[in-house]
């Protein structure tokens, strides 16, 4: 078989970038599920809001990419906290499925509102000046921005892992996931932790949105199909482990990239097919814990 290395590496890079979005989004879903017992169907819509936030910051207020990386996750995170305080918190004690239905509805509302004002076409977002151009690595041409997205996402994922698995705050969080009543008995404000966790998960989605704005354009439906793929990623990886989510996310992105090169017809479906295979071979998901 004649392999065009240049094209192969290009697709691998696209795969890695998609993988970083899968990782950031499935990480947020896992953290939220751990604390709230809710699968956040609105995650795709909030990812889209992150991208739009960056777009508004640049085009309305003239605030550039670097500030958007910090401001957009905070703004969308605060919006998430508002949703949690006003709606999601009333679902505790109800069947998990109600959380899925409620957040599905929220996702529809958010996407519908943006579609009304911005249609379905994409709005361009320029790559920041510092990250324009590319480097010739000899075997391939690496656009600087794309390399940056992969490296930065990986760093954020690892930072989140460190926060949850290696710090005092993370220890409280893990304890509250296991047994919220007992942790409350120790005088820790668990409801506030739940709210902040939702804010954190949503903020990660918004951050992914900002990162994707210069690559994928800013579109109201940019998160709608993505979230379904991320669900499949979550089913494959299981939501029990933070590191598991990160690795599964990147790995599936790479596999998708390879499929795009070797058998492009299946590139849309490969993640779903892998999900079927994993369910047949190891029903509990790759990293264990069943729900």
């Amino acid at each position: 078989m004649d392999i065009n290395l240049q094209a192969l590496f290009a697709q691998l890079l696209v795969g890695l970038i998609n993988g970083s979005f899968y990782a950031l989004l499935s990480l947020g879903l896992a953290v939220i599920f751990g604390m709230l017992n809710i699968i956040n169907f609105a995650h795709g819509a909030l990812y889209m809001m992150g991208a739009f936030c960056a777009y508004f910051l640049l085009n309305v207020l003239g605030i550039g990419y670097w500030y958007a990386l910090i401001i957009a996750p905070i703004v969308v995170g605060l919006f998430g906290i508002l949703l949690e305080r006003t709606m999601l918190q009333w679902l505790s004690g109800l069947d998990h499925l109600y959380g899925l239905l409620l957040t599905f509805g929220l996702g529809l509302i958010i996407q519908g509102v943006f579609q009304n004002y911005f249609g379905s076409s994409g709005l361009p977002y320029a790559i920041p000046e510092e990250l324009r151009g590319g480097i010739n690595l000899g075997f391939m041409f690496l656009p600087v921005y794309r390399g940056w997205v992969v490296v930065f996402s990986l760093a954020v994922c690892l930072l989140t892992w460190f926060l949850i698995e290696r710090t005092q705050l993370g220890a409280y969080l893990r304890a509250a996931t296991e047994n919220p009543t007992l942790v409350r008995a120790f005088g820790i404000n668990v409801p506030r932790m739940i709210t902040l966790t939702y804010g954190l998960g949503v903020g990660l989605a918004a951050l992914a949105g900002v990162l994707s704005a210069p690559i994928n354009q800013v579109r109201p439906l940019m998160g709608a199909d993505l979230i379904i793929v991320v669900f499949a990623v979550v089913v494959i990886g299981g939501m029990g482990s933070i590191m598991g989510s990160i690795i599964t996310g990147f790995a599936l992105g790479i596999i998708e990239g390879l499929t795009k090169y070797f058998y492009p017809e299946a590139s849309n479906t490969v993640v779903f097919v892998l999900m079927v295979l994993v369910l047949l071979i190891k029903p509990a998901g790759l990293t264990g814990r069943t729900a």
Binding site: F33, L97, I228, V235, P283, T290, A291
Partner: peptide
């Protein structure tokens, strides 16, 4: 395939399978 998992996972699996069929 779908009944191999319960609850929330069942919902996500059926959604993903339907998306597979869509493509």
């Amino acid at each position: 395939i779908a009944i191999r998992r319960q609850g929330i996972y069942f919902a996500m699996i059926t959604l993903a399978l339907a998306q597979l069929m869509y493509f």
